[in-house]
C-alpha cells in the first residue's frame, strides 16, 4: 500500500465521518454545529481532490465553499433565531421510512459500482490536473457555457437583491 492509498483511506474516513455529523449529530441539533462540520467535510474533500490531481479545484473548493458559502450559511443562521429547533421531536415513522428508502438507493448504487468495477480495465494515469490545462479547456471548448454562467450569476444577484427587499411593489 503506497502513501497515497493510506492518505486516501484517512481522508475518506474523515470526510464521511464529518458528513455524518452534518446531518445526524447525536450531541447537538444546532445548525451552527452542522455548518462547522460541513466546513470540515469540504476541507477533507479538497484533500481528496488533491489526491486526484485536481489542484486548482481543491483551491476553488476551499475558497468558494469554506470561504463564501459557509459564511453565508452562518450569517443567515445568526440572522434567524433558531432556538426552538432543539425542542422539536423527529417523527419516527417518517424517519424510518426515509432511512429504508435511502438504504435501498445506496444498495442499488453500491451494487452497480461493485459489479462494474470488476470489468474496469486498469488505466495508465497520465492526467496532470494543471491550472493551465483547465483554463485552456475552459476558454476553448467550454467558452459558451462559461459565458452563460456569468449571466446566471448576474441573474442570481438581481434575484437575491429583489428577494431581500422589505416590501415588493
Amino acid at each position: 500500500m503506497s502513501a497515497a492509498d493510506i492518505f486516501f483511506y484517512i481522508l475518506a474516513f474523515l470526510t464521511v465521518a464529518c458528513g455524518v455529523m452534518v446531518v445526524a449529530n447525536p450531541f447537538s441539533r444546532n445548525p451552527v454545529t452542522s455548518a462547522m462540520f460541513l466546513v470540515l467535510t469540504i476541507v477533507f474533500m479538497a484533500g481528496l481532490f488533491i489526491l486526484l490531481n485536481a489542484f486548482f479545484l481543491a483551491a476553488v473548493q476551499i475558497l468558494v465553499y469554506a470561504g463564501a458559502v459557509i459564511v453565508l450559511f452562518l450569517f443567515v443562521i445568526m440572522l434567524l433565531d433558531l432556538k426552538e429547533e432543539e425542542r422539536r421531536k423527529v417523527k419516527t415513522i417518517g424517519a424510518g421510512l426515509g432511512t429504508i428508502a435511502v438504504g435501498a438507493i445506496a444498495f442499488l448504487i453500491g451494487r452497480s459500482i461493485l459489479s462494474y468495477a470488476k470489468t474496469l480495465p486498469p488505466t495508465e494515469l497520465t492526467l496532470q490536473g494543471s491550472t493551465v490545462a483547465l483554463g485552456r479547456k475552459l476558454f476553448t471548448d467550454y467558452v459558451l457555457p462559461f459565458e452563460i454562467l456569468s449571466l446566471l450569476l448576474l441573474v442570481a444577484m438581481v434575484g437575491v437583491i429583489l428577494l431581500s427587499k422589505k416590501d415588493l411593489k
Partner: peptide
C-alpha cells in the same frame, strides 16, 4: 455514501 447521507 456522501450522496446518500445528503439524501437522508
Amino acid at each position: 455514501i456522501l450522496f446518500c447521507l445528503g439524501l437522508w
